[in-house]
Structures are given as C-alpha cells and as structure tokens.
Design a protein around this nucleic acid. Structure first.
Length: 859
DNA sequence: AGCACGCCGACT
DNA sequence: GTCGGCGTGCTC
C-alpha cells in the first residue's frame, strides 16, 4: 500500500442501481472535503496545509436534498460559500462536535461524477506529487465547478458629499477613484487589494463613513446553457388553421418536426406571437433544451482509411491485439504515418461503445491533427484544452460524462478527461516537455498520469514519437534495467508492466529521410562570409524560388539572443524585475519597437538614446526571428516569407491562418521558433534551415543533449514529407558535437546509447530520480537562509544526493529571488525521503516553496 | 480568503 | 490607560 497514507477515508462510491431510499432518512449528515480558501494560491506558492487541509467537515442535510458520496457540493464556510466533495454519509453527528456549530449543505452542484478508478487516479496523483487532494480535484475539474463566493465593495454615491476627499488617507482616495471610474462603482476585494497598498485599512475608514458598503456575491457556477426549441406535436394539422399557419407547420415537418426557435423564425419569417398561437392550439410545443457549446473546427471533407505499409500494419495489429493494460512505444521516424495508425486503432473501439483519449503537446499548434481526426470521425471528436472558454470547457466536460463513445483530443490537463469507458490512451509526441507541469502543484507529467490511468482503466497506452524520451525508451526497450524513471517511492509499484516496442523505420510511400548537411560557420567566417546565412543556405534559398518549392527556417531564440546594447559604451538594457536582458520585438512591419522581458512580460519602448551615455547607437544583437527576417529581406528581396513565432501567433486561430496561407503557397518560407518542431505536416516543404544550432547545445542542465537532439531531429523531419525529397542545412560553430553528428545520420539509437551511459554513470533519470525544491522570495537573504536551513535539515544518507542549495540559473524573476535544492536518488535503493511537512515548517512564510517531483524545467 | 483574538508599542 | 498595528488560528 501507500507509504505515506493520509487520513483521507476512501470515498464511499455509489454503485449504480444501489438504492438509498431506506437509509436516506437516517443519513442526515455528511462529511465534506472542503475546498478551503487560502490553500490554493496562484503561481507556485503553497504553504503548510496538509494536516488541516485533508480534514473533513460535517454538514447537515436539509430536507429534500439528496446527497451521495462523491457529489460536488456548495457549503457555507466561515462567512463565505465554497465548493466541496461529499465523502461519506453519517447517521449521527460526531459526538465531539457541538451541534450548534453544524451548518446545512447549501446545494448539490453535480452528482454521480467520481467513479472508483477515477478517484483512485486522483489519489495517486495526490500521493506521488505531494499535493493536497482537494487541489488535485481542482486540477481535474473544469473551472467554475468548485465555486467560491466573492467579497465585493460597492460605492454609496448618495452618501458622498461633493469635494470632501481631502480628509481621506491616500489609499482611501485611491479606492474612491477606482470605484468612481466604473458606472456601477463595484469591485472585488481581491482586485482592489492587488491595486492598492493598504487597502484593508482604507476600506475600514470608508465603511465607517458610510461611503462604501461590502457585500458577498454568491459563487457563479457554469450552468448548462439552454435554448428554446420548437417541436411538432400533431401529425395532421387541425382543419381550423389559417393558410399561413398550415404553411408554417409544413416547414417544421419538412425539417424533421424540430427546429431551434431562432432558426425557425428566420426560415418562416414569422414572429413568436404566431408560434405562441400555434402552441395554444396544441400543434407545437416550445421548450428549453440544453445546448452544448463546443469548439467547432471548420468542416472538413470526410476521408477514408488509408492503406498501410508492412510496418504500419504490424504496429496496428499489435495495438489491436493487446487486451487490457500495456504500454506501447510507437517509434516512427518523422513522416512515417503514426497518425493513420492512431485513427485505425480508434475506429473499432467506437463500434464497441468505448472512447479514446488523445493527448498532444499544444492543440493550437496542430490544427492539422484535429482536422484529420474530424475528417475521419466527424462529430465524435471533442477538443479539450485550457484555451477553451469556461462555457465550452464545461459543456465538453458534460458531454464526456454522457458516456457516448467519443474521441477527446486535448493537452496535458485532458489526461483527467472524465471519459467513463476508456478503451485507449494515445500520447502523441510523448517526448514533448509541455506534458510536464512546472507550476502550480501538482507538478504532474501527463505521461506518468496516463500510465496510471491506463492501468486503472485496464486499457492500452500508446506513446508515439520520432524521438522518444529516454524514460520511455528505457521502460519499453531496455529490459532488466530496474523499473525505469517514474515508478517507485510512494506510488504503488507496478509489478509486470506489459510493454511493446513498435517501430516504423521508414517514411510512408518509401520516401527517403531528408539529407542533412552540416555547415561549419567558423569556416564560413574564415572564408569571408559574414552573413548569418552560409553559402550553402544562400544557394538553397535562391533555388527555392526558382524551383517553386517551400522551405522552413528554424531559429532557436531563447534568453540572450536578441538583446539591445549600446555600441558606444556597451550598456545592455535589462529587465528592472529580472536578471535578464530585454528582448527586442517589433509587432508590425512599421509598428512600435518594444523591448520585452521573456520572464515577467515587462515591456517598455525602445529608447532613442543609450540611458547610460546618451549615444544614439543603441542597436539590437542576436538572431531572433526578426533579425533573420530583416536579413532575408535584404538578401532575398523577392522571397516571400511568413513569421511563425509567439509574436505573430498571439491571437486565436492565428496558427491555422498562417499555416493555411503557407499551404496555399502565399509564401515561400516559414520562419519560426520551437513551434515549428511540433508535428507540422507540410508536404511541399523541401528545405529546412537551422540558422544556428549552438544555442540549443549548451544549455546548462543534464537534459540539454536530449532536448537538442529531439528539437533538431524534429525540425529536420519537416523536410521532404511530400513527393519531392527533402534537404536540411544545419549551421553550427561546433560540427563535431555528438548531437550534431547523430542528427546528421538520423541515428537515434546510437545517440541514445551514449546518452544513457552518461545518465547511468551520474545516476540521472531515467535511472535515478530527481526532486527539485524551488524557493523564492522578494527578500534575497531570506530565500538564501531558508534554502540553507532546509538543505542542512535534509536527511544525510546513502543513496540520496543533495545538490545545492544553489541560486537558480536566473536568480531574480519578477522581483523574486530564487534558490533551488536538488535531490537525486536511485529508485531501487528507495532512500527514506524527507518528511515534507517538516521541510515546509522550516520554510518561513515569506518564502514560497514548491516541491517539483521529477522536474524537467530546471531553470 | 476573511475574520476574531491577542499581544506589543505610541499616543491621549 | 486606550488605539491600532499585524501575527496566529479557525472556519463543520
């Protein structure tokens, strides 16, 4: 069983069909896991909570309200209303609790939601990631279900004398100013407190004067949205109808006897009064019917299953043959047709009444994938990700609970999609780091959670990638090497995880992988080429236009690649809140020049002169997308290009628009960053250029090589996916680097072998495990002290390495100073892990502490 | 989060 | 003596 068993009693789950009728009168009380306020702060902050947080509160059931374990409730807590989960019913109130303290359950928000296996999944997440259970529930539920009331402040204009503000304190005047700026003079405490320092004190003054009043707004829940619908109730219209009325009924009949009211009005060009009359005459009824708001992609032409090559067929058969839980690693080179396998593996499941879950790194980046699923399965597709509006998310969530066989495509959080009848989980591009959540807690990895989920639902999990993560590789491919990275500690060990390795070594239609040419930029410079483009790349770009083909330019832009500095005194413009230089942006071609911090989003205009020496020679350096774009315009004036980066894809649907433009041949070249690596399928692209690979190679953590290989191999894989063969040009100052060599030879396996040897020697994942303690505070000394105190208190023992405390790579971000402690240990040695509650106690309140389990982002 | 309770320093 | 700062603990 679990090592760190918490006090939380198991959920007494209602079995379907079980009747409560005989006991309902006896169970007048319910124990509730309350979503206590103060527990879930935004960002990484989290404080001592576990003991009191997992505590259950007892409420009385008012007459007529039926509650079952697992129901989502709204209960009074202090002076506010909060959400909670019913854990179990009681026939008697606890003896040690004064009866007058017990309050009534307010309402049932949603019932029959948690099933046994789903509850167990959340429990495992809570244990493994050391996260309070209620917070895990919160991660799993769509926002707006666990409601919370809000304290608000309202202006009482009638009490305010004219022009008598001088006697007020400064913050009080500020409050009045802000409230008066809005017509209703009404804001939440939360908002005002953020805007005004000393808000609470000033609020008191104003209440005493009677100039403002406070009130509590009840929680706003997402509710099913309804729309009036008109239904035909008679087959033969009564004879006493007018000609017009008969006409209208005829229209309704032609539409299958049912139409949305607003559509109906438009089609018949009639009014509600007319329809009301018909309703009175008993010919039709007008009712409210629930509508499910869901993101509808563009309608796409239906398509048919494509024929498979031998390797694809083999892989598909293996997936279909698997009964129950197994992990299958689908290792297919770029362009090998993994998506077609997913589609054909899912098709028979739907016929069996089961559903499938497809997890992808970022939905916005892969409109093509969703389109292909839509083309094959039509409206059986539901898209679920955090960019959906609250209503859309809520409705999609309700739609999943119906149990209709369907396919949910979603990002990280969709691993918690409440599909009751799961037949298959697919995690596409499984190596991608966006499956890991850095903050807030739980700091879960969707791959790890998917593994548990597949096990609990007893269904297969397919991990797909052209460049599998070393974790998955070791788990599936390297036998007898321990239990791999993610298992162990306080998650129940999975004894014999059945696993399969499925390989697609060739591209579909026997298309060759692109040739990869490595260009040594040092030689270019020696030979007098000072352009950011090598002669090879210049030639290739020239040919692109002539041969009417398309290309991609990849730029690795991170950190210092586009800083602004003074050519006279060397001054570099830095972020006032973070220890990084500001990056140069230009929103439109001739638009304003903005300097932006990539860490805290601080922005300022580009100063004309150097703030230090007033020199006008203040210029930006580095090769961001903009710089490359400028160079291109200069050197290849007739090459049409599209920039594809966070500047140009900020708006909703921009990805799709830009990609469609490109696919329609409105440009010759796509220039962009990381986004280009994620599964784009653009058949016309024959050329891929990597402007400078070096920025990728020398990042200071143990995963740098793996990440660099994955990124480069994925970009390279965008070339030659159509009829024409592809060509890749990688520019670098270190052509002898092993990653570069592996990319050139498309040699995943030998790269992996060497990389794994190093990981094993240093006991890094996937062999050893890591836990990262992140500390941050506005006070530089307090964090440092806290980090030292905590590090000193950690248990010293064989098999547990404590690295640090050390300042984070970038010490200060958004005015907070950051320190880290890294714990490294061998999972098979199972060292005694620290008592995290004790650790949290050592951490002063002013310092926030996040425990990141299996961290990936170490910055 | 919001509020009560309680402990110290500055002022009537 | 009292007012009011904020540190601590509780909310069924």
């Amino acid at each position: 069983m679990y090592i760190n068993d918490v006090n939380l009693p198991p959920l007494v789950v209602a079995q379907s069909g079980e009747s409560y009728d005989t006991r309902i009168n006896k169970n007048q009380w319910v124990e509730v896991l309350v979503d206590c306020p103060g527990i879930a702060k935004e960002g990484t902050t989290e404080q001592k909570e576990e003991e009191q947080e997992e505590k259950l509160y007892t409420y009385r059931l008012p007459a007529g309200l039926e509650v079952k374990p697992g129901d989502i409730l709204s209960v009074p807590f202090g002076r506010q209303q909060v959400g909670g989960i019913a854990i179990r019913l009681l026939a008697q109130p606890p003896a040690n609790l004064a009866p007058e303290k017990i309050r009534d359950v307010e309402d049932v928000i949603h019932s029959k939601f948690f099933r046994e296996s789903y509850w167990q999944l959340l429990e495992r997440v809570s244990h493994y990631y050391y996260t309070p259970f209620i917070q895990v529930i919160r991660t799993a539920l769509p926002p707006g279900l666990l409601g919370r009331s809000q304290s608000r402040l309202r202006l009482k204009r009638e009490n305010i004398p004219n022009g008598a503000n001088e006697f007020l304190s400064f913050p009080a005047r500020e409050i009045i100013k802000i409230l008066q700026s809005q017509a209703d003079g009404d804001y939440s405490f939360k908002f005002l407190r953020r805007q005004i320092k000393g808000f609470d004190r000033a609020k008191k003054q104003l209440i005493q004067r009677g100039w403002v009043e406070t009130y509590i707004e009840l929680p706003r829940y997402s509710r099913p949205q309804t729309k009036p619908i008109v239904t035909l109730t008679v087959s033969v219209p009564p004879i006493d109808l007018s000609k017009r009325q008969r006409e209208i009924l005829q229209v309704l009949r032609r539409h299958g006897g049912e139409l949305w009211l607003n559509d109906f009005l438009q089609i018949c060009n009639t009014t509600t009064a007319t329809l009301k009359k018909l309703e009175e005459q008993g010919c039709i009824v007008i009712q409210q019917r629930e509508i499910l708001r869901s993101e509808n992609g563009p309608t796409v032409a239906a398509d048919q299953p494509k024929s498979l090559n031998a390797a694809q067929f083999q892989a598909l058969s293996t997936i279909k043959e698997v009964k129950g839980y197994a992990t299958l690693l689908l290792h297919g080179v770029t362009g090998s047709g993994k998506t077609e396998i997913y589609l054909q593996a899912i098709a028979p499941l739907l016929a069996q009444g089961k559903s499938a879950l497809v997890l992808v790194p970022e939905i916005g980046l892969t409109p093509q994938l969703t389109d292909r699923f839509r083309a094959r399965f039509g409206n059986k597709i539901n898209v679920y990700h955090s960019a959906l509006s609250g209503g859309e998310r809520y409705d999609t969530w309700r739609q999943m609970l119906t149990g209709e066989p369907q396919i949910v495509i979603g990002t990280r959080s969709a691993v918690f999609a409440p599909l009751p009848n799961l037949g298959l989980i697919i995690l596409d591009e499984e190596h991608d780091n966006s499956f890991k959540q850095d903050s807030p807690i739980p700091t879960y990895h969707a791959r790890t959670v998917a593994q548990w989920r597949a096990e609990l639902e007893n269904c297969p999990l397919v991990l797909g990638s052209a460049t599998p993560s070393l974790e998955s590789w070791v788990r599936v491919r390297v036998r007898g090497s321990g239990q791999g990275g993610q298992e162990g500690v306080n998650s129940p060990p999975t004894p014999h995880t059945p696993s399969h390795y499925l390989s697609l070594p060739e591209r579909i239609h026997s298309r060759p992988l692109p040739t990869v040419e490595i260009v040594d930029m040092r030689q270019e410079l020696q030979q007098g080429n000072r352009s950011i483009f090598s002669r090879s790349l210049q030639d290739a770009l020239q040919q692109l236009k002539q041969q009417n083909q398309q290309g991609i330019l990849f730029i690795h832009r991170r950190g210092h690649s586009t800083f602004v500095s003074c050519r006279n005194c060397g001054y570099v413009l830095e972020c006032p809140h973070c220890d990084v230089s500001l990056a140069y942006h230009q929103t439109e071609a001739e638009g304003p020049q903005i300097l932006r911090c990539h860490y805290c989003n601080y922005a300022r205009s580009h100063p004309r002169n150097c703030p230090e020496c007033s020199s006008p020679y203040l210029k930006f350096f580095g090769s961001g997308t903009q710089r490359v774009a400028q160079e291109l315009t200069k050197q290849f004036p007739d090459l049409r290009f599209i920039r594809f980066d966070s500047d140009t894809t900020r708006t909703k649907g921009a990805h799709r628009t830009l990609l469609t433009q490109f696919a329609n041949g409105e440009a010759d070249l796509l220039i962009g960053t990381q986004m280009l690596t994620k599964g784009l399928d653009l058949p016309q692209v024959t050329l891929v250029g990597v402007v400078a690979a070096d920025g990728l190679l020398y990042l200071s953590d143990y995963r740098a090589s793996e990440r660099a290989f994955q990124t480069l191999a994925q970009v390279a894989g965008r070339a030659g996916r159509g009829e024409e063969p592809g060509r890749v040009i990688v520019q670098t100052y270190t052509p002898e680097h092993p990653v570069i060599e592996a990319v050139q030879k498309h040699d995943y396996e030998s790269f992996t072998t060497t990389e794994l040897e190093q990981r094993q020697a240093l006991n890094y994942p996937p062999y050893g495990r890591l836990i990262l303690l992140r500390l941050s505070s506005v006070d530089p000394m307090e964090v440092q002290n806290a980090a030292q105190v905590i590090a000193a208190a950690l248990p010293q023992q064989e098999g547990l390495d404590i690295l640090g405390p050390a300042p984070a790579n970038i010490l200060r971000v958004a005015n907070r100073y950051r320190w880290q402690i890294l714990l490294k240990f061998a999972p098979d040695a199972l060292p005694e892990l620290p008592d995290w509650e004790k650790v949290r106690e050592l951490c002063p309140k002013s310092v926030s502490l996040t425990i990141d389990i299996d961290p990936i982002n170490m910055m």
